[in-house]
Design a protein around this nucleic acid. Sequence first.
DNA 1: TTTATGGCTGTCA
DNA 2: ATGACAGCCATAA
Length: 119
Amino acid sequence: MSSAHGPGREARRPPSTRERIWNVVRRIPKGRVATYGQVAYEAGLPRAARQVGYAMAALPEGSDVPWHRVVNARGEVSRRSGRGAGGRSAERIQRALLEAEGVAFDARGRIDLERFRWE
DNA sequence: TTTATGGCTGTCA
DNA sequence: ATGACAGCCATAA
């Protein structure tokens, strides 16, 4: 438990933007998806959809954040820059994880947001 | 401090 | 339907 006064060893800082974003993503139930813009909005950063993508890319490996449940506004898995570690294999993985949760993709690789959107 | 960069998103042709 | 552009704003350098 924390001391009653003073910063103590760990300085209590307001939650960073990333943490707030991760926090929201953690709330997305299994079998559901949310868009980047939606997550940003829920996190209190209405126009920061891009930062959500950035925050996802910055996730540590063993995190419990279900990053795969975040898709773009068209209801599809966003394309990565095409490079970097993992790179596009992450796209496949994301889709596989979603399908494993029961999220359906149509022939064009899109998800029906009316049906699977969180909330 | 300033600049550059993006797992985005509307809007318009 | 697709493709180009311009806003958007936190991080990293």
